[in-house]
Design a binder for these strands. Structure first.
Length: 560
DNA sequence: AGTTTCGGCGCC
DNA sequence: AAAGGGCGCCGAAACT
């Protein structure tokens, strides 16, 4: 029994609310109130709030201590519906959706986030796009009808509701922040980089390594300048195209070791060093801005602080509050398990029906027990590897798990032929860009001159099309995994609602819950249950299991 | 001078 | 012979 209300912020800071019936249409008078937080707090019986945009509304509710059970984010739903309808290029704002309904001129979307560090969040800037509640309700009613017309209406409803749940989780994480010990972070930096010199120059250890590199070359070399390093190697009679680790690593030259060490530490210094600490950590919390569904595959992104790329060594600084713990949970072999569920390959489902190491099981069936080779083969199939051992291993994989490989092959072919590709729940990848875009340039192929000859001849796909195929091949797995992960998060969030536990971090297949030590056991169980529930809800009844490795720790770095 | 792209690498 | 997918971030380089 859901009690659904709609809510729209007004220009004057007030709010309009209205009750909705089971059909999604207004079931009572439209009410005007002065304070959004009070409007929500005074209606505890409401289980789902329908609103334009969670990032617009929810942070100000959280700021006053108000949480909601569920919501429906109209603009996120519009994005998903447009994508599903093959209209991903059309403006996704509620105002645009309303204009399409009423046949008026469709306003373009407000510009996306401004570039550059220190820029204000785009999410909180979209103030010019208020829509009166009556208009919002028209869009909502239309969206409900469009769900019915989707390829799988039930899945589409699940997708938009779980995406909405994701926006709530993200907003709450942004509000809570990740517990962060600045003191520990400084200790880690000092241990790795040595003293920090005044004036922002290189710390001691980096300066020493730069000296070692220079000594090895016999001349002054700046290791942070790729062009300088390439010149230096050329001077030593070694031709390199780039200074990437995989290209430099195998060279026989005394500069290599200090150079690689420099690059590793330089990265820590510039991306997660003292200035990062100053910019992003306040009052014992790292506050990145999580954004649910920020990518075409449905994975989240963050803005600011690189929250999804925290280096392993820096995780030492993620420390629970006194008396609290971090429950760190990592889904085991999520992608092949998802592939089993979406392809319904009997062999792979059977393997994925056990909680034990999936790659080990695959290796025993198809690779004489060579786990590393099995893992490479599976990931190669998912990522579209086109060369090396992966190709050979793919044949072995195909013999044992034909439906699984066929599933990703079909997705790749669909992409190459320009067809739409969807995740299990119906998130749809936008159609390919114009021919000649991006990929050809990367490959150094001039655009225009021979574009026709390059592509679309039988049996040979163009560079663009093959890149497209790799993308769609990966999309169905990565995106369906994101479908599952959202439902898992939503279930876990609900389990934590009655506890002090707070969700503080989410990274594709990994979640961290911060909770009092006494709640850790309950949280661990809740994660297991959420994972299995999400598996059933997302993919229906399959034998596939979704086990998590969980660790109850005081410090993130101790989890693995 | 300010803005965009590049090279490289962090995470999954 | 071979270019495996998705992201964000930084400074330098390249551009306007």
């Amino acid at each position: 029994m859901t009690d659904r209300w709609a809510l729209a912020l007004a220009e004057d800071g007030g709010v309009e609310v209205a009750p909705l019936g089971p059909d999604g249409l207004p079931a009572g008078p439209l009410l005007r109130e002065s304070d959004p937080a009070r409007a929500v707090r005074s209606r505890p019986e409401v289980t789902r709030w329908v609103w334009r945009s969670t990032p617009e509304v929810y942070p100000r509710l959280l700021a006053t201590g108000v949480r909601v059970e569920r919501c429906y984010d109209i603009e996120d739903a519009e994005t998903l519906l447009l994508g599903h309808e093959g209209r991903s290029g059309e403006p996704r704002s509620a105002a645009a959706a309303l204009a399409r309904l009423r046949g008026g001129p469709v306003p373009p979307d407000p510009r996306t986030r401004p570039a550059g560090p220190g820029a204000q969040s785009a999410l909180f800037e979209q103030s010019g796009t208020h829509l009166p509640l009556t208009g919002l309700l028209e869009v909502y009613a239309d969206q409900l009808r469009r769900h019915d017309k989707a390829e799988h209406p039930g899945r589409m409803r699940l997708l938009t509701s779980s995406e909405s749940a994701g926006t709530l989780v993200a907003a709450e994480m942004n509000h809570t922040g990740l517990p962060w010990s600045a003191e520990t972070h400084r200790e880690v930096l000092r241990g790795l980089l040595g003293e920090r010199y005044a004036g922002g120059g290189e710390p001691r250890r980096l300066a020493e390594l730069a000296d070692e590199v220079s000594a090895a070359f016999g001349r002054r070399v700046r290791p942070d300048l790729p062009a300088d390093v390439i010149r230096a190697f050329a001077g030593a009679g070694i031709k390199v195209r780039s200074t990437r680790r995989w290209e430099i690593g195998s060279l026989d030259h005394p500069a290599v070791a200090p150079l690689l060490e420099y690059k590793k530490l330089y990265r820590i210094w510039v991306a997660h060093g003292w200035s990062w600490l100053h910019d992003w950590v306040r009052d014992g919390r790292f506050r990145p801005e999580f954004q649910a569904g920020g990518t075409v595959t449905g994975r989240w992104v963050t803005h600011g602080g690189g929250a999804l790329q925290i280096p392993k060594v820096i995780r030492r600084a993620v420390v629970a509050d006194p008396g609290w713990r971090l429950v760190v949970a990592d889904a085991d072999q999520m992608e092949p398990r998802v592939l089993a569920a979406i392809s319904r390959d009997p062999g792979l489902m059977e393997v994925a029906g056990r909680e034990s190491d999936l790659y080990q099981s695959v290796s025993e069936r198809a690779f004489s027990g060579d786990r590393a080779q099995a893992k490479l083969a599976v990931l190669g199939a998912v990522y579209g590897q086109t060369s090396g051992d992966g190709l050979k291993n793919l044949a072995a994989l195909r013999r044992r798990f034909p439906l699984a490989v066929a599933y990703v092959d079909d997705a790749a072919r669909a992409g190459e032929e320009g067809r739409l590709v969807r995740t299990w729940l119906g998130r749809t990848c936008p159609p390919a860009g114009r021919p000649g875009e991006d990929v050809a340039e990367e490959a150094g192929i001039p655009i225009g001159s021979d574009a026709e000859e390059r592509g679309w001849t039988p049996g040979y796909a163009s560079t663009d099309a093959r890149a497209r195929g790799r993308f769609t091949r990966n999309f169905v797995v990565q995106g369906s995994a994101a479908d599952w992960a959202l439902l898992m998060l939503a279930a876990l969030r609900r389990s934590c609602a009655g506890l002090s536990a707070e969700l503080v971090f989410f990274q594709h297949d990994e979640v961290i819950v911060h909770c009092p030590a006494g709640e850790a056991g309950v949280v661990v169980s809740a994660i297991r249950e959420a994972a299995e529930l999400a598996g059933r809800l997302t993919f229906g009844e399959t034998p596939v299991r979704f086990p998590f490795s969980t660790a109850v720790v005081e410090c993130y770095a101790d989890a693995k």
